[in-house]
Design a binder for these strands. Sequence first.
DNA 1: ATTTAATAGTTAAATATCAAACCAATTTGA
DNA 2: TCAAATTGGTTTGATATTTAACTATTAAAT
Lengths: 151, 151
Amino acid sequence: MAMTKNDTLSAFTMSMRKAMLEFKSFLRNKLKESNIDLTFEMLQVLIELWKKDGVNQQELANLLHKDKASLTYLIDNLSKRKLVQRFEDPNDRRNKIITLLPEGSRLQAVILPWIDEMYTVAGKDIPVQLIKDGILLFEKIQSNLNPSAHS
Amino acid sequence: MAMTKNDTLSAFTMSMRKAMLEFKSFLRNKLKESNIDLTFEMLQVLIELWKKDGVNQQELANLLHKDKASLTYLIDNLSKRKLVQRFEDPNDRRNKIITLLPEGSRLQAVILPWIDEMYTVAGKDIPVQLIKDGILLFEKIQSNLNPSAHS
DNA sequence: ATTTAATAGTTAAATATCAAACCAATTTGA
DNA sequence: TCAAATTGGTTTGATATTTAACTATTAAAT
């Protein structure tokens, strides 16, 4: 049977979904091995804060392509675990600035090596140019599906 | 600053996430425009049933890379909407065979054109070979992260 | 043949996502 | 300046995902 371009795209999205799940699964296993009670999504937030601490929820939502409502819950869950803290921005009291607590900072040295390992394992025997081509492909698809989004 | 291969992979996963969200968002908008009360995930199940009706939950879970527990809930929600029905397999009473109800079948003619449109829009000005290259890239990453998985 | 193991499905609990409604604070603009 | 619009965050309700424990059924093994 002839495979149309749209059939290929259907296989593409399926395979993309599965690759995404493998990344998540890799990290979940690492966390579980060390009995760290964190989800992949909470980790995404922490990673952004390790790059730049003191960011408000909306900025985090934008960086992570998540809904601001999702961020409310994620910050709640990170706060419960005493990893981050909310502060009201004195310059604009609508904003809640999120900062790392000591335990949240401490985890960086433990977890970042796992992230690095994950990418090293995932990218084994793959030329970096292929990965860059993949990014360009994603960006083209994004702009096709949503021309108004200014990436 | 120099961008390492792992930095590129980090950008890759971010961009992949975003592309996935655009696909979901496109379909959600279509469904909403027509006031069809279905989620992207319920649609994934229907699409498999449109390809092959009368499949059990575990097979659906495997096809969609989902957990069997997720399928229980998805089938519950599709049943509530009178789109599918569970049957006990007489040959193996552990299995629940899922079949389309009339309304579930009827939706195919409405929704499949949207799926086709989604892929046509997404793939505009993209040579099919690039998409195939993307699939190979995903498969390589999958086997790197999870060598035991026999795709 | 009887015990053991594996498989399919359900349930519960915790978390995540999304849309919509909402509040408070700030910005715009007539 | 004051009303309207925008922005950041929260809440609610519905759905999705994951893990783990559990039941029922079937298959495997000694």
